[in-house]
Nucleic acid binder design. Sequence first.
DNA 1: AAGGCAGCTTGACACAGATCAAGGCCGCGC
DNA 2: GCGCGGCCTTGATCTGTGTCAAGCTGCCTT
Lengths: 239, 239
Amino acid sequence: MPHLAFPSSTCDGFRCATHCSVRPLAICGELEQLEHEEFERLAQHVRYGPKEALFSEDEVADAVYSLVEGIARLYKLLPDGRRQIIGFALPGDFLGMAPSPRYSFSADSIGGVTVCKFFRGPFLRFIENRPQMLMRMNGFATRELSLAQDQMLLLGRRSAEEKVAAFLVGWRDRLARLEGVTKTVSLPMGRQDIADFLGLTIETVSRTFTKLEREKLIVIVPDGVRVLDPKRFDALAAA
Amino acid sequence: MPHLAFPSSTCDGFRCATHCSVRPLAICGELEQLEHEEFERLAQHVRYGPKEALFSEDEVADAVYSLVEGIARLYKLLPDGRRQIIGFALPGDFLGMAPSPRYSFSADSIGGVTVCKFFRGPFLRFIENRPQMLMRMNGFATRELSLAQDQMLLLGRRSAEEKVAAFLVGWRDRLARLEGVTKTVSLPMGRQDIADFLGLTIETVSRTFTKLEREKLIVIVPDGVRVLDPKRFDALAAA
DNA sequence: AAGGCAGCTTGACACAGATCAAGGCCGCGC
DNA sequence: GCGCGGCCTTGATCTGTGTCAAGCTGCCTT
């Protein structure tokens, strides 16, 4: 079967409240009733199956997205195919703002994903005279930037073991915000994705997981990892 | 002489128009006469000598800065002293927004630097009901984020030679925006700064410069580099 | 002019992580 | 239940970049 780049299904946006358990975390989280209804009217709720593209680098950036459900990988490619994952997007995250008229990176779903999609024009018109909304966008952008800077430190100056540990801790903390604190960290992305996020090869990631398990810091479980010694683990991730 | 961490001089902000040749590029670039005067009243113009700290990671973030003149390095440190430079700030750049109450990185001057300093409270009160200003801040943040993502690709997936070439091209283009296009790219930062920006050691940076010179792509000149073959050079930086 | 020192370059060697290659595990379709 | 393919792990070897150690250059001080 040929790979379909089209979203699996859409719904027209009214009566989709069930999708929005993450609304308090999302871009629209502070809108009140009436404004939110107006905002909803601009949205298309779109559902993607596994491994579909939401948008691609260099395409005209005609829409922005609020991730409602599922996980997306955001990445850039070099001409020869080397890939750098610049982030994993979780529910509540806001995607697609670009400093130029084209997207500066690509995004695709990992498992199934649901988004609120807004066309750029109507979206900009909605926010342009709503300072609350603009402040919120600023907050989102500032947080993203700070995460990106942490990642630069990781990519430029940490060893493989530190990279993997820091990744697991960071991921665990982001999940905790959504799902609460847990002992086992679920890893919906594959080893290759983790490697491309950390600037390593898949073999090094695999070996490092094994090493951390041998050192009794984690246990590898299907689709995830259980952290055994959070104290020692956080220390490794920090230093 | 002990190293002084205090700014070398300040002026009180009225009649400092001469400092602001970069105003069209800066955060305040779209304010009109009256609003700009009100904005100026919030600013302290501060001058720093070489290698002074504007602010440091984990300090309470009580001010934001618009860089007027000179160059600053922005960086993060690991507990053991490893350093990652996350960017070089040029005139017009806006510094110090943090997602938490504390700065998430440190900034210090390279040569002499002049800034407009705004205390957080008054600054936030000024922008909070000015959508134009908020939109501009969004633009700044989005551009910064995009640069950060480019840098992640560089740090995670490029070879030493590609890193140095991409750095020189990126730096040349940023300078061009301020000073116009030139054949020789001035490098006010030292080799160690370049190394810490690119996730390399100073020796590797030095060897790579030498290699690029041997290959007749550049000529090393005092405090800079002359690009001999822009075509071939841009290709190396891109791929 | 001499001395000192900070910043840069160069060389020899070491090693973390890449590359190449093989094999294991597991879920899925038939 | 069997074979296939995707994903992951493991081993052997290679290599780009780091580390360590000199030495060079130009500038500031006296």
